[in-house]
Simulated scan of single mutants.
Amino acid sequence: MQQTIQQKKFSQYLHNDHLVEMPYDQELMLKNQALQSYAHDQHWPASCRPVIPSPRPRQYRTLSKRAIVGHGEKILWQRAGSRDQSDRRLEAEGHGALYDFILSFLAKPGYRELTKHVNYVILRGGYETFCVILNVDQMNNVVVRKCKLLAEHLQQADLGVSAAFIYFDPSRSEYYLESERPPAAVNYKKLFGSQLLQLGIRGIKLVYEATAFSQINQSILPAFIDAAEKMLRPQPEQRLIDLYCGYGFFSHLLAERYAEVWGVDVNSEAIKSARLNQKRLHPDRRMHFQALAIDGRVVRRGLPKMDGRREVMVLDPPYQGTEGAVIPALAERCAERVLHIFCNIDRVQTELAQWQDHGYRVRAIQPLDLFPATAHIEILALMER
């Protein structure tokens, strides 16, 4: 019986498939109750704090995508992904009108050649201005010409579009901005606007490529960085190791609190943005960013030499969690504090157990409602030696 309980996923504890229909205070109460039961059954090694709520419980998603179904003038948008992740009520205000505008052109006979090659239309950016990405499986002259024509209409429309791009994805990959592409192929073309998107937090403007990862709920990011900073308790003589750093969200927002920062991410475009942010924001600080796959070998050979400097770590891995040898290799560095962030709550117990096996104690567990109206909860877990 115990084994069966431990295998239950967190979503099974919510007992509700209609979170989007609930008042937000009721949703938070349900999530807090489910978290306490789940943490108890999973034998989490520290008590679970109350969930930090999202300032925007609905219309918070700054990234959405649509695929096209149908033929000719009888075409419709089809939301990709599960219902709770793609409900229109969760997307930023303005996405719906923008999709309707784009569809009005793609349904015209003159756009038929483009329409049949569109994998997805992706919207991202902020809550007031948007970037349009046309993900296509062909990059021929007709497709490019029609994309440019559509882009001209987007520029003229009063819909908040600040930039547009073509993204070449011949494999029609499910994850629409990462696919196997011919190395020599042109895969990314700006139609208009800035090459970079912007994110403003604490009076700091971070920039990143339109194809780079960024959290979709921008409204909660100030609370996210505040929680991380309080848990880490930065000291000016410490070095910060930021793994899976992306464009440097933690690195740059916490840079002034540390003597030195090292960031590592597998995505070379994200690292390029992290370095650009350093030049813009912290040109005189000791900061190093590397594009490397994060595994045990890289942790042992690619990070700075252990020279006696006091060290703390932040790691925010993807949904599938860390590669098997990463945590043991990181533990060898004997960092004073480690903040391990989980976007997959069902990975928490397994990976915290690895830290415990290597001499760390779990001091605090802080949930964050990064994805309201869904069963996904972000977890910040603090470990100390």
Rank of each mutant, 00 (worst) to 15 (best):
P170F: 03
S173P: 03
K190Q: 14
P183W: 00
A157H: 00
A184H: 12
E178W: 08
F192K: 06
E178A: 14
R181C: 14
L177D: 01
A157I: 06
Y188E: 10
S162H: 01
A184K: 15
Q156V: 00
A157E: 13
Q156E: 12
R172S: 13
P170K: 08
V161L: 00
N187S: 15
S162Q: 14
G160C: 10
S162R: 08
P170Q: 07
S171V: 08
L191F: 11
D158Q: 05
A163E: 08
Q156D: 12
F165G: 06
E178C: 09
I166E: 02
L191Y: 06
G160E: 07
N187G: 15
D158I: 00
P183T: 06
P183Y: 11
V161A: 04
A164D: 02
D158L: 03
Y175P: 01
I166H: 05
D169S: 14
P182V: 12
Y176S: 11
P170S: 13
D169I: 03
S171M: 10
V186K: 09
F192R: 04
Y175G: 04
P183S: 11
A163M: 07
L159Y: 02
Q156K: 11
P183C: 11
L159G: 12
D169E: 07
L177H: 00
Q155H: 07
A163F: 09
F192H: 09
A163R: 03
Y167W: 13
A185H: 05
L177R: 02
A164M: 10
Y167F: 14
F165Q: 03
R181E: 05
S162Y: 00
F168S: 10
L159Q: 07
F168A: 14
A184I: 09
L191T: 05
